[in-house]
């Protein structure tokens, strides 16, 4: 009875993170939504995965997609978790900057030019 080669099969399934829920309580969360956690979250009554998420955001904000990758969970599940935390007031979600609101390319180029001039003029 030779065991097969090692299988990297997951041990803990994703549905455990949300007790099977896949529908977030808010539909405003994009994969580029930036998540910000308060500096010292009250982690007492939280579930382990929620605590892990808040800790992950301690060094700084991350996008939803990055958070999901770090937690190694499907995006849909993390979205539900984030929606719960935002509802509980433990997490701030900032919508991604829409394309239309980004500074124009010409302005950025001008700024770059200016910066370079600054360097060269020194």
């Amino acid at each position: 009875m030779t065991p097969p080669p090692r299988d990297h099969r997951r041990l803990v399934p994703a549905y455990l993170a949300t007790t099977g829920r896949g529908r977030p309580s808010r539909n405003t969360l994009d994969r580029l939504t930036v998540l910000l956690a308060p500096a010292d979250p009250a982690t007492r009554d939280l579930r382990p995965e929620q605590r892990r998420l808040l800790q992950l955001l301690q060094p700084g904000p991350l996008s939803l997609a990055e958070t999901a990758a770090h937690l190694r969970l499907p995006l849909s599940v993390v979205r539900v978790m984030v929606a719960d935390l935002v509802d509980a007031g433990l997490l701030a979600a900032r919508a991604p900057v829409p394309d239309a609101e980004l500074p124009e390319r010409q302005i950025l180029e001008k700024v770059l030019d200016g910066l370079r001039t600054l360097k060269s003029s020194r």
Partner: peptide, 29 residues
Amino acid sequence: LYQLQSLLQRMQEKYEDPLVAEDLLSADF
């Protein structure tokens, strides 16, 4: 069933639609 598990896991990564995601989670369970 292990093959099904792998398939479901891949689908969970792949489909983001909340309704589909929830069904996939139930199927996985």
